[in-house]
């Protein structure tokens, strides 16, 4: 069920990018997409009544039914990449706003490549 939800999140993000003209909204919808994919990655590794892959006092043996640790490592990286892209996107958006005075991409399209 969680997989379905994550894919829906992905599609909502895609819809967001498709319809907005404002750059900030676009970056937000890109984030929603990233979020959807990350949740999906986690759900790929999910094992029914599995245990977090961490050896502690209570779950001390590696034979217990652990959840797949690899997707969680990948998600860690993917989240940080999301952060990188968003910070860059916002920086560009701010520069664009200072230069053209608007966040609306279509408006700038008019002044072709002056």
């Amino acid at each position: 069920m969680i997989r379905l939800a994550s894919l829906l999140l992905l599609l909502i993000g895609l819809y967001g990018v498709l319809t907005t003209k404002n750059v900030i909204k676009m970056i937000i919808s890109i984030n929603i997409m990233e979020l959807g994919v990350n949740i999906f990655i986690i759900s790929v590794g999910f094992i029914t009544n599995g245990v977090a892959p961490n050896l502690t006092e209570h779950i001390d043996s590696s034979l217990s039914n652990f959840v797949d640790p690899l997707p969680q490592a990948l998600v860690l990286t993917s989240i940080v990449i999301g952060l990188g892209i968003t910070s860059l996107g916002l920086a560009f958006a701010r520069k664009m706003n200072k230069k053209y005075g608007t966040y609306d991409l279509t408006m700038i399209g008019g002044m072709k490549d002056e």
Binding site: V23, E34, Y100, L105
Partner: peptide, 20 residues
């Protein structure tokens, strides 16, 4: 910057698809 942002958005959508 508007071209760079277009590139960024298309690029990130592409990389998300690749990750999936």
């Amino acid at each position: 910057y508007h071209h760079t942002i277009t590139y960024l958005i298309i690029g990130s959508v592409g990389s998300t698809f690749y990750l999936l």
